[in-house]
């Protein structure tokens, strides 16, 4: 193990006590698994912070997000989301095919307890407008392109009204141009909404393009191997030289992490 563990200073915008997500000593084992999938993960995400979680396939990124989303519970340690709920987005939009785009968003509003049919309709239209899908309220998910579906899913996540957005490789299945546009869209939404975002990816460039902080996870067990602050100001582009340079450095560490398992 050669990589040094570097703990960046927490961004401290709103006071030390405030965090959007706090993981302390989190470990997760599945029944029958010899080594734990996750082990001793300490990770704080500040309100409004954009953190990218980077790691090889199978290192436990999805497992970690599921823990934060409350869909699973850790074997050891604690997961705190002080605001209560974190919205989760997947690689597949996972919109309900029996509802229209607008109804998908409305369902999230309704389950969140927003009263009034009319109010929900108006709010759903506002959210669709926010992801620039004003005219797609009555479209069925199968009538939308992959990128549009992910934007509806984004609107649905916003409808949940939490202040944490968890994204599990949400753009991995999209073509490069669409992904590029969605990167821009996501950063714009993040800046306007002030959400804390935890964005999981195995794409180093994507992580550097988006995040204020990039956290590299090791594999088997998944631990925080190292993290970087990304001080390149937004708007960034994926082809920027500064993005490329940091990506090269991070890729080196990722390769090293992976090759440890080949020895």
């Amino acid at each position: 193990m050669t990589a040094t563990i570097e703990t960046a200073a927490r961004p401290d915008r709103t006071g030390a006590a405030q965090t959007a997500v706090r993981l302390a000593g989190v470990g997760k084992s599945f029944r029958g698994g010899a080594t734990p999938v996750l082990d001793g993960i300490d990770l704080d995400v500040a309100p409004g912070e954009f953190v990218c979680l980077l790691g090889a396939s199978g290192c436990g990124k999805s497992t970690l997000l599921n823990l934060v989303a409350g869909l699973d519970s850790p074997t050891t340690g604690t997961v705190e989301v002080p605001s209560g709920r974190a919205a989760l987005m997947f690689q597949e939009s996972a919109l309900f095919p029996w509802l229209t785009a607008g109804q998908n968003v409305e369902l999230a509003l309704r389950l969140r307890g927003l009263p009034g049919r009319r109010e929900r309709r108006v709010e759903a239209e506002r959210l669709l407008d926010l992801v620039r899908l004003r005219g797609s309220y009555d479209k069925r998910p199968h009538q939308l392109s992959g990128g549009m579906r992910q934007r509806v899913a984004l609107a649905r996540a916003l409808a949940q009204g939490g202040d944490v957005l968890l994204m599990d490789e949400p753009f991995a299945a999209l073509d490069a141009i669409t992904r590029d546009v969605l990167h821009e869209e996501l950063v714009r939404l993040w800046e306007t909404t002030g959400l804390a975002v935890v964005f999981v990816t195995h794409n180093v460039r994507e992580a550097v393009r988006l995040g204020q902080r990039v956290v590299l996870l090791s594999s088997r067990p998944g631990r925080v191997a190292r993290e970087w602050r990304v001080d390149i100001p937004q708007p960034r582009r994926i082809e920027d030289k500064t993005v490329a340079d940091l990506s090269v450095e991070i890729t080196e560490h990722l390769r090293e992490e992976i090759s440890r398992h080949g020895r």
């Binding site: 919205a87 597949e92 996972a94 369902l107 999230a108």
Partner: peptide, 27 residues
């Protein structure tokens, strides 16, 4: 199972999950 997980994440628990996710998905 993804639908059920999404349902849980957007706040459908218990009967609400049956009504808003399980039944329409099983239709």
């Amino acid at each position: 199972p993804l639908y059920l997980r999404v349902g849980r994440n957007i706040g459908a628990r218990g009967l609400a999950s049956v009504r808003h996710v399980l039944l329409p998905a099983a239709l």
